[in-house]
């Protein structure tokens, strides 16, 4: 009781003030038609806003689960595509038996840090060696290629972006299969340069550039970009080609890490050939 009195002595004026203002405002809203209508209207607007916000939040949380589901669905589909399988058929099998085996496996990952502004850009993913991610694996998004894993810890991995001065990606022009190397000059994050396409190659501006699978890092036939301009430099046997990427590396969020299940064999082959 004494505590209550002390409380009232200390904050009584403030409490009385709030009480009297509350009584006054209630009177205003109850007994004045115009103010009452404004209050009802504002209250309606407020509740509508809160409802919309909570809807948006529910959508957002639902979306996160939906993304995870779609990622695993995508992986299942991607792993059934021809370019992700090793075919052991010499002739089409009339029985329709599945005579191919898995070559590429995919792991979904989220980008947790990214950059496109420097000449050597890196991304960081929230998946690491716990999910089987190792250095030299490729990273793709649903629209194109993203980079190559450079290092992995248990929970995270560092990816060298294709927007890196050292990046060299083997690609081909889809219509004619001429192959070249995709590099980046460090200027526009939407454009990369296609090198080593010989002067005699035939193609047109607007042709699609895709991976060719020579490096065993990316599956073949992943669309990378479109040829936007071609330049012939005097005294050079190759074209200068500008390729506009399909994926905007500046807003990439969900990616897939590509694992080549026969990489060991390729390494053994390399070693045997070098001996």
């Amino acid at each position: 009781m004494r505590g209550l009195l002390q409380l009232f002595a200390a904050y009584g004026a403030g409490m009385l003030f709030v009480l009297l203002e509350a009584v006054s405002l209630t009177l205003i809203i109850q007994y004045n038609q115009r103010q009452g209508e404004i209050a009802t209207n504002s209250w309606g607007l407020l509740t509508a806003y809160v409802d919309r916000s909570s809807d948006w939040l529910a959508d957002y949380w639902g979306l996160k689960n939906e993304v995870i589901k779609l990622q695993s669905k995508n992986i299942k589909l991607m792993e059934q595509l021809d370019n992700a399988r090793y075919s052991s058929l010499n002739r089409p099998d009339s029985l329709g038996r599945d005579s191919s085996e898995r070559l590429f496996a995919f792991t979904s990952a989220n980008v947790i840090s990214n950059s496109v502004l420097s000449t050597n850009n890196f991304l960081r993913l929230d998946r690491g060696s716990n999910y089987g991610i190792e250095p030299h694996m490729g990273v793709i998004s649903s629209d194109g290629i993203v980079g190559i894993v450079r290092a992995a810890t248990e929970h995270f991995s560092q990816v060298m972006s294709v927007l890196h001065s050292q990046s060299r990606i083997n690609v081909s022009i889809r219509s004619t299969n001429y192959f070249g190397t995709l590099t980046w000059d460090g200027r526009d994050p939407l454009f990369m340069q296609l090198e080593a396409i010989p002067r005699h190659a035939k193609f047109v501006v607007g042709d699609t550039v895709q991976t060719n699978g020579y490096s065993q890092i990316f599956p073949s036939d992943i669309p990378v970009g479109i040829i936007r301009s071609v330049e012939e430099v005097a005294g050079n046997n190759f074209f200068n080609i500008q390729v506009e990427l399909f994926n905007d590396l500046a807003n990439v969020r969900y990616v897939y890490v590509v694992k080549n299940r026969m990489k060991k064999e390729h390494d053994e082959l390399d070693r045997a050939a070098n001996d």
């Binding site: 003030f17 009584v23 209630t26 009177l27 809203i29 109850q30 004045n32 103010q35």
Partner: peptide
Amino acid sequence: ILVDAAYDSWGVHAAASV
């Protein structure tokens, strides 16, 4: 509140006065 009674604007003058 007494001014409000005369002006028929219940609460407006009271809230401002408080």
